[in-house]
Design a protein around this nucleic acid. Structure first.
Lengths: 214, 214
DNA sequence: GTAATGCGGTAACCCCTGTTACAACTGCAT
DNA sequence: ATGCAGTTGTAACAGGGGTTACCGCATTAC
């Protein structure tokens, strides 16, 4: 059983002014999301703005043929930039959002977030900072896809994954990695094997352990 | 010799409320930019917000090794989303902006654009719409780079170029195209030749003519 | 136990694309 | 006219990585 929003809004107390925090408590709805839940799919319209209290959300692009590509993660204290945009202009989404872990989030009605842009300077700052961060991360993603080889992308991916989970043991199948990087399972197996030979990691069943000099 | 801003702000009269237009006239500085001028480079800080009256700006990503990749164009009546973000948070740019044609733009001090977010609903809408459009275009760019082959990317590129210039005759060298798509000149020559054989276009020196069934 | 399913290892194959090299051609400068 | 710089055509080669196929192994269901 979850307690009231008031216990969770303090995750945001470093960004938000007191009046905004109070308003947030009053307006937001607390939600619990199980790992793996798809919260938003391509083409859906956006009904509420999620502020992440704990856990992590994976944001990815899916093309028409169902191929996927990981864009970035939304972490604690963060929110989704696309949602800001889409909700303010009542457009539908071009991306997919999935809970990477069990997550807790505060859901805000779209209406209030627009009002708050005018009312609370700290909210405006937060929204702008979030948008800029996402832009930067998407640009990073473009750099990877456009200029880097698959082996480098795989290494970046595993590092990021390790950072997100806070562990050097990653519970991942080769297929899952391939999906996130928009490539084939065999390619990933091949590259992982090479990394194992180079003593960068160890491969187990559905599990990868990163070694010290990864 | 350029006339006063007042003659140019009407490009924006469809988006902006009258009071904002008046304020724009008072605050903006009119600038003329020659084709090929680099207006913003990676690592630079942003001093002013450009609103494009006429012409077109090419926005691209450059990586550390100097490889380039075209992201999108800013056209008449539009502005640059990254600039909004960076200027509001006083961050430096991660992208490059170059005048694609001779262009005229209104330059706004960073300070006022922040105030206007609160003051003018139509400004807030414009900013948000711009940001969303850019997001969408960058996602499109990711789709291309991640999922499409070079021949498909080349076709998209030429179509876009034709739309921007409003002509089916494009004054481009193969090298320039290669730079925009982040690839090698020889690759472009090869693919163009194939398109010429397929009767999609004609190749001249420093010039390409798109045919009807392109 | 056995069967079924999913995961991982490996080989073989091929296409796309990046790279290098060189020749032919254009246009401009002198 | 000659030379030079920039542009284009083409061949040849190499490597990355996408694809298919098949096998062994682990896990779960029955």
């Amino acid at each position: 059983m979850l307690s009231q929003p008031s216990n969770y809004t303090n995750k945001f107390s470093e960004f938000f002014e007191p009046a905004l925090l109070a308003d947030l408590e009053a307006s937001a709805m607390l939600m619990e999301i199980k790992s793996g839940t798809t919260m938003l799919n391509v083409g859906q319209s956006i009904k509420a703005l999620p502020l992440l209290v704990s856990g992590a959300i994976k944001v990815s692009r899916m093309n028409e043929e169902g191929q996927e590509l990981l864009l970035y993660y939304v972490k604690e204290g963060e929110s989704c930039a696309m949602t800001f945009n889409c909700s303010m202009l009542s457009q539908s989404s071009v991306i997919k959002g999935t809970a990477e872990e069990d997550s807790i989030l505060l859901c805000l009605p779209v209406k209030v977030m627009d009002e708050w842009m005018v009312k609370y300077p700290s909210w405006k700052r937060y929204v702008m900072a979030t948008i800029l961060n996402r832009f930067t991360e998407i640009i990073k993603c473009i750099d990877e896809v456009a200029f880097k080889n698959m082996d480098q992308r795989l290494v970046s991916y595993l590092k990021e994954k390790s950072k997100i989970t806070g562990s050097t043991v990653l519970n991942l199948t080769h297929q899952q990695i391939g999906d996130d990087l928009g490539t084939n399972r065999v390619v990933i197996s091949r590259l992982l094997k090479k990394l194992e030979n180079d003593k960068k990691l160890l491969i187990y069943n559905k599990q990868i352990k990163l070694l010290k000099d990864f």
